[in-house]
């Protein structure tokens, strides 16, 4: 065990799989000797050579397209898109190619590829270094979408993603890259995809969250316990596609009061899917409206980013609203 930050845990996960499996490769902009702009790939070129961890031209479409070809021909590429905001030139390759290859070829070809990308606000990055685009991808059959919220899960989920036979979009909450350290086991372990985790028990209300919103929701749950003496369950979804529907519905039914939190805009956001799922399958258990706390339906601001991002106070307000309904 050693205490690692989230970005160090990502690095450890990559190194662990690269040591174990020679077909695992890392490619992307500045991932080589520099080790990536966030140092997620630090030391990998030195340890594994330029054939295994290499810099690419500044071309997201090329990175993903080449990754798809490598994956179809026996490699396990881990492509880095430097900021999730830059992923859109590769949208076609991800959505129309990687996600559909197994299906459209009748199972003859498949794309075991991981796309790692830092997402989200809180780093003074303005509207092109702060977006949360998970909903675009969670809408795509054939993809898996994973978002860890802590170092332990980041390493375990990344190892599962690399071992997965299908393309996985692995979105890393860059606001949490160095926010805290956590005990992370050395060597290989995995956290399964498609499995949510309850981080705080409680049955007065439940808050569903993922990524950088998890600590925000934990803080809000603590405030409610302190101020109102009520216990809020905190469920970290960890994988958005495929969603752990049982975990969501079980928690919603047990608590009867639901808040859904994400920093992405609200309209057609991931919270809409969660709300609809609960409304469709557990409406009779609901004691209050399902409330969403999200970013606004605007582009991401710079100077005022902390007024855009949901914080513990906004989540606490929403929890009070459902608890007092």
């Amino acid at each position: 065990m050693s205490k690692l930050t989230l970005v160090q845990a990502v690095n450890d996960g990559l190194r662990t799989k690269m040591q174990e499996d020679a077909s695992v490769l890392v490619l992307g902009e500045d991932v080589g000797p520099k080790g990536g702009v966030f140092l997620a790939t630090e030391g990998l070129t030195a340890e594994f050579g330029e054939e295994r961890c290499f810099d690419t031209p500044l071309s997201e479409d090329g990175i993903i397209g080449v990754g798809i070809g490598m994956a179809m021909n026996g490699m396990r590429p881990v492509c880095e898109i430097q900021f999730q905001d830059f992923i859109f030139p590769a949208f076609d390759q991800i959505v129309s190619e990687a996600a559909k290859m197994r299906y459209r070829s009748g199972g003859q070809y498949s794309v075991p590829m991981v796309i790692r990308t830092p997402y989200g606000g809180g780093i003074r990055g303005g509207l092109y270094h702060s977006q949360s685009g998970e909903a675009y991808f969670a809408h795509t059959a054939g993809l898996k979408v994973v978002i860890p919220s802590n170092p332990h899960d980041a390493k375990g989920l990344l190892i599962s993603a690399i071992e997965d036979p299908d393309p996985v979009l692995f979105m890393e909450p860059k606001a949490l890259y160095r926010a805290f350290r956590q005990e992370v086991p050395e060597g290989k372990y995995s956290v399964p995809l498609g499995s949510a985790q309850t981080l705080r028990e409680g049955d007065d209300a439940v808050v569903f969250c993922y990524g950088a919103m998890v600590p925000v929701c934990q803080e809000a749950a603590g405030r409610i316990a302190e101020q109102k003496g009520q216990e809020v369950r905190v469920v970290d979804l960890r994988t958005l596609l495929p969603l752990d529907e049982d975990a969501v519905l079980d928690a919603a039914k047990a608590c009867g009061r639901v808040v859904v939190v994400h920093e992405a805009p609200r309209f057609c956001g991931y919270g809409a899917e969660l709300s609809a799922l609960i409304a469709e399958h557990a409406i009779e258990y609901m004691e209050a409206p399902i409330v969403r706390v999200t970013g606004f339906d605007t582009p991401f601001p710079n100077t005022l980013e902390h007024y855009y991002l949901p914080d513990a106070r906004r989540v606490t307000d929403a929890l009070e609203r459902v608890l007092d309904f």
């Binding site: 397209g65 990754g67 798809i68 070809g69 490598m70 179809m72 021909n73 026996g74 490699m75």
Partner: peptide
């Protein structure tokens, strides 16, 4: 680019 990836593999 996919063909290039196949070739790079």
């Amino acid at each position: 680019p996919q063909a290039v990836g196949v070739a790079m593999a």
